[in-house]
Amino acid sequence: MAFTALETEIAALTGKVDSLYETYRTKAQTIDQSVANALNAIPNNSKTYYLNAATGADTNSGTSSSQPFRTLKAACDAVPVGGHGIIYLAAAPHVYDIDADIYLRRKTIQFRSQANLTTGNRPIIRQRLSADENEVYGFYVQDASVSFVYCALETATPADLETVPSDGLVRRIDMMGALVGVLFCDITLGTTSFVNRSSGTASMWLQIYGSTITRSTAGRGVLLNAAQQPAIFGASNNVLPEGLTYSDLMAGLKTDATGRVYNVLSSTEL
C-alpha cells in the first residue's frame, strides 16, 4: 500500500511539473513573439537613395538607380530624423541644383558620386539664386552632419552679395553643432562662402581632404566664414588657388593682440 501511495504522489508531482513546464513554454513563446514584434516595429533609419538629374523624378521611390529621385531636397527629406542616409549621384554631366533651402536636422547625410570618380566627370552640386537674386539657397545643418565624396561643389555669385543673408552653401550651424566633411572633391568658390556660420554658438567641424579649391573669375568667397563663432578646421592634401593660403580662404576669425586666431582650432597655420 505504501508503495502504491508513493507512486500516486510521484505521478501527481510529475503532472504538476508538466503543467508548470507547459505554462513556462506558453509564456516564453508569448514573450519571444512580443520581442520580435517590438524589434520589427523599430524603423530602419539607415537609408540609401539615388539621384539622376536627367531621368529621375521626385515621385519615384529613390531606392534604386532605376527609380532615382531628381532633386537633392527630395532625397534629403526622405532620410528620417535621427537617421543616416547615403545619397548616390549619377556622375557628370549631371548638375544638381540647390534651388530650395534644404534643412538637415539631426540627420547624417553623405553625398557621393555613383561612379566614385577620383578625377573628372564628378556630379556637380551647384548653389542657386532665387529668381529675383535676393536669396541664395543652401543646406541648413542643425545638430547634423553632411559630407561630400567625389563631387564638384559650386557656390553662387549673387549680383549684390550684401542683400543676401545666410549665403553659405552650408549654413546656420547651431543647436548641438555640426560636422561638414569634404573628400576628393572640387570646390569652386563664387562670391558666397562654402560654409557660413550665420548663427548660434555651438561648435562645428569642417574637414577637407584631397580636394581642389578654386575661385571663379568674380569669386571672393571663402571656405569658412566662422562669423566670430567657435569652429574646428582640418585640412590635408588639398590644392589651393595659386598664391593663397587657408587664412586667405577664411573670414570671421577672432584674433588676440599677437594676431593669434582663437575661435578656430585648426590643423593648419592660420
Rank of each mutant, 00 (worst) to 15 (best):
T26A: 15
S113N: 08
N44T: 10
Y21R: 15
A53D: 05
I98Q: 15
L6M: 12
R25K: 04
G120Q: 09
P68L: 01
A78W: 15
R25M: 03
I109M: 06
S66V: 07
A12P: 14
N45V: 05
Y96K: 15
C76H: 04
L117R: 07
T118S: 03
V95K: 02
G120S: 09
I10E: 14
P68E: 03
V35Y: 09
A36M: 06
L51M: 05
R128V: 08
S65D: 00
T55G: 09
Y21K: 15
K27L: 12
I125R: 08
L51V: 00
N40C: 09
T48N: 12
A91R: 11
A91S: 14
L72I: 15
L51Q: 01
G138V: 08
A75G: 04
S130C: 06
Q142N: 08
N37W: 07
L72F: 04
Y137P: 10
T23R: 14
T63Q: 14
Y88P: 04
T55N: 13
T30V: 11
A74K: 12
G120N: 08
A11D: 11
K47F: 05
L89P: 01
Y50G: 00
K107D: 00
T48Y: 09
Q114F: 07
G15T: 09
L129M: 05
E7F: 08
T26I: 14
N134T: 10
T59Y: 01
H94R: 13
T30L: 10
N45I: 01
T23G: 04
K16L: 11
A78P: 14
A100T: 14
F139Q: 06
V81K: 11
V79T: 05
N121G: 03
N40F: 07
T26M: 15
A11E: 11
F69N: 12
S66M: 02
I42P: 13
L117Y: 03
Y88N: 14
D18I: 12
I31V: 14
R112K: 05
G120D: 02
Q142G: 01
T108V: 04
V141W: 00
F69K: 11
L89E: 09
L13Y: 09
G62Y: 00
N121D: 09
T48F: 06
Y140M: 09
A53K: 05
A11N: 14
S19R: 06
D132S: 06
A54L: 01
A28H: 06
E9S: 12
Q29N: 13
V136T: 13
D101R: 12
P93W: 11
N44Q: 10
D143K: 11
A131N: 03
N116E: 04
D58Y: 12
V136N: 09
D132I: 10
I87C: 05
K107F: 13
N116C: 08
A90M: 04
Y140E: 12
I124F: 12
V141L: 08
R105P: 04
A53C: 10
N60L: 08
G85A: 07
P43Q: 02
Y140H: 07
I31G: 08
A92G: 06
P93D: 08
H94F: 01
K16S: 14
I10S: 14
D58N: 03
Q127M: 05
Y137Q: 02
E133W: 06
D99Q: 13
E7K: 10
A11H: 13
V17N: 12
T14I: 05
A53I: 04
Q127S: 00
I31A: 11
